[in-house]
Write a protein that binds this DNA or RNA. Sequence first.
DNA 1: TATGAATGAGATTTCATTCAT
DNA 2: CATGAATGAAATCTCATTCAT
Lengths: 218, 218, 218, 218
Amino acid sequence: MGTPAAQDAGPRRVPRPRADALRNRERIVTAAREMFVEFGPFAPLDDVARRAGVGNATLYRHFPDRDALVHGVVLAVMSSVNDQAERAAAEEADTFDALVRFAHAAAGERIGALCPMLSSGFDGHHPELVAERARLEVSVQGLVTRAQEAGRLRTDVAVGDLMVALSQLTRPLPGVGCLDIDQFVHRHLAIFLDGLQAPARSALPGKAATLEDLRSDP
Amino acid sequence: MGTPAAQDAGPRRVPRPRADALRNRERIVTAAREMFVEFGPFAPLDDVARRAGVGNATLYRHFPDRDALVHGVVLAVMSSVNDQAERAAAEEADTFDALVRFAHAAAGERIGALCPMLSSGFDGHHPELVAERARLEVSVQGLVTRAQEAGRLRTDVAVGDLMVALSQLTRPLPGVGCLDIDQFVHRHLAIFLDGLQAPARSALPGKAATLEDLRSDP
Amino acid sequence: MGTPAAQDAGPRRVPRPRADALRNRERIVTAAREMFVEFGPFAPLDDVARRAGVGNATLYRHFPDRDALVHGVVLAVMSSVNDQAERAAAEEADTFDALVRFAHAAAGERIGALCPMLSSGFDGHHPELVAERARLEVSVQGLVTRAQEAGRLRTDVAVGDLMVALSQLTRPLPGVGCLDIDQFVHRHLAIFLDGLQAPARSALPGKAATLEDLRSDP
Amino acid sequence: MGTPAAQDAGPRRVPRPRADALRNRERIVTAAREMFVEFGPFAPLDDVARRAGVGNATLYRHFPDRDALVHGVVLAVMSSVNDQAERAAAEEADTFDALVRFAHAAAGERIGALCPMLSSGFDGHHPELVAERARLEVSVQGLVTRAQEAGRLRTDVAVGDLMVALSQLTRPLPGVGCLDIDQFVHRHLAIFLDGLQAPARSALPGKAATLEDLRSDP
DNA sequence: TATGAATGAGATTTCATTCAT
DNA sequence: CATGAATGAAATCTCATTCAT
């Protein structure tokens, strides 16, 4: 006490998570992400724990139930996707090329695996999720807006359309890899992106999907 | 034996299914199709039976296990889809319009629900399935070929590309209807179809998917 | 159809539970009652099922969760106790003797084992429970009232006092039979019953407990 | 070694427990006593530790397993009860009044919570327990003997009867406070004490319980 | 020493499938 | 043939206890 280190914080309140605990949490999220991509969001949690190399109860310490784990994985994927969006915006000269690069990068991040996770009990109002969505607003929405202003992207679509179709087209098929969908993903994405270029050949039914529409319970 | 009734078949060989048994089978397939669309291919079979209004053991009499039931549903969906393809080919003058009409009709038939079913243990060599695929060969393949020959469809895609993307884009989200995907399906399909029109704006990665590629275990 | 048996009931609605199912249900309740007496209301349900000689899932078919099972056991015990009360009232000449006989009989029925069960999630408003309590109202309340009117029972106690003290004094000690409480139960009950005889030697603190006070959530 | 400090003990033999360790032990026993009264003797030990405001491992340092903790709590309760007995004997003129006062005081000390604890693996021969029982012998046994010699207490009961009935009548109902038993405890105790006064109205079945009978494994 | 984290064993509950009426 | 009931295997989750910081 009285040391400089003790000044800016109360005495050992929230005593900084231990290094090994952080590493375990990381490993669990990684394992869960892989398992969910491969077997869907109902992969046995014991298997997730085994793949992460921890006991099952350790998993439950970090994530009290499946929904919490799904939440963690969704956050991780969204974060990666946002990273990709920011990188694409920064490094790509042409506005549509940036979109294309982002889309294929997001496919690589297995963004399609998010879809089935959203079906689980899911709190769309969780602060962390709201924050990550705000980041998405800035990055991907930016990509879309700039491409539209440059006349490179048809104006009857919105960012939600891009995200949903991107996710659907890249959704994995849970279970064993009979009919490996991955080999087709980038083809179909390319076709869809072609369809996104202005001018529109056909009038689109329905209304453009905004980010708000992607909220679980609006 | 020897009686007129026994002429075309041995005694009590295939004793012609009773009318109520046939109706039960039909109701089970219908119920299973709805449940699989709503909850995915792992919906509890007892629930399927309850929705069909029969006892669970009756379900098991008609379909010895889940795979058999999935098989039945897949056949039913493929059959409906083939019907739609034949109708579109017969009634639509423009070759690409026929494709468009077929695609939206197939989306209405919930073809996307097939995807997760293909993950189950699935015998791609089953005679009925082979037969239905042959019908697909004639109908949808015909739509594609004609549109390509008429210069209305880019030539670097194949029928497998259409079927897979069509299925993926229309896949339902299992669970409660948070984020109702259905409202977007036809939009995204329209965009994808725009992308399918010739000439191609971008070179497609990978190779075109044929019907053969859609076999579960190639 | 058209038979007399089919007249008074719609066609096979609520098709009368099967004999073996009824027997199983009975066996489960009996086993649970024994286990709860011996190990308390948190005895493993698998053990209950094993003692009943059925599979665990059979237990869950009859009683969806522990509370339902506890409910069933409580009903069974209350029913037995009510039987004892009616018999004592019918066969015993002296009004206080009837109370005494009932109390010891109820102790033999292990009424004390009810106490810890009431701690579980427990629906005091369940119709069956309400009915059984009404029966208690008639029988035990009758015993108490008559004894009081005959001047054989102090008038500053009520039926709730009797039931609670009777239950408490005869509560089993869960776990192995170290310190076998059973050998003392009837002694202490006799002393308490002595204290119940008029005239009161001491003023009682608090207010008399009615049957209403024994409702879980009043 | 050889230093003055090491004279009365070998080097670092029983190095006198630190003040904070003692305080922790105290807090753990208090918390455990409260939790056991409220939730029974199987309250999660992590919860006990949390209520005590210490880490779970600290609890395990002081009490290697649940039985050790139960042992500690039982000792604490017995000690309090003995205190009450000595005070009642010293301050109350009438011998039966002393018993009455002691009984109600013991009820206030939650002596009833001891009952379920005796079900746990319990070493009745532990020296500390033997010592505390000896103290009980002197204090409560003294109260009983004196009242009997004064003709104020029926002679067919023994101190074990008093202790067991007293404990049973004041046992708490674990779980949430539906049916709050506490409001009735002192009523029933008063009735029981009335029944304890001489002369006996009824012959008691069984044999009087001595302190020896309360040993866990006789 | 005190602590948060980790762990495996066990309890509850669900469900695909078989049995008996 | 149709049905309700029964079953075991597996999944989720809890908790007493040990480990490492």
